[in-house]
């Protein structure tokens, strides 16, 4: 849980989103601009300033029943407007493991 105190320290250096896991099944979700969650990164609300990030995170954390462990994650916005995860960890969360699963899905 991110305490309000820790949220004060939040500083972002580029476009970011808020991501979490859905409580009942654990899947990766992103906070949308409609105060809701979506499994698609393309639905995510993009924040560009630390104030916006803090506000979006505060709103996300308030939904303790729906989501677990919300935090701010960097994204990259392509020229086409497509949103990409900003680091390897977020890439893996979105795309899945980088290896072949023992049993193909």
């Amino acid at each position: 849980m991110t305490s309000p105190l820790e949220q004060k320290k939040i500083k972002i250096t580029g476009p970011s989103v808020v991501t979490a896991n859905r409580t009942w099944d654990g899947i990766v979700i992103y906070r949308t601009a409609r105060q809701d969650w979506s499994a698609k990164l393309s639905d995510a609300a993009i924040v560009r300033t630390s104030d916006e990030a803090r506000a979006l995170l505060a709103e996300s954390v308030a939904d303790d029943v729906g989501a677990v462990g919300a935090y701010i994650a960097p994204v990259e916005i392509k020229e086409s407007g497509k949103i990409k995860p900003g680091n390897l960890r977020e890439h893996i969360r979105l795309q899945g493991v980088t290896i072949d699963l023992p049993v193909p899905a």
């Binding site: 409580t23 009942w24 899947i27 969360r93 899945g96």
Partner: peptide, 28 residues
């Protein structure tokens, strides 16, 4: 109680851990 909101994640986390349930990158 967790799914109904009676327990917060902060309270539930220790209870689930005591029974082997972590939250990982993709899922529990």
């Amino acid at each position: 109680r967790r799914l109904s909101g009676e327990l917060t994640e902060d309270e539930f986390k220790m209870l689930r851990l005591q029974n082997g349930v972590y939250l990982q990158l993709h899922a529990y």
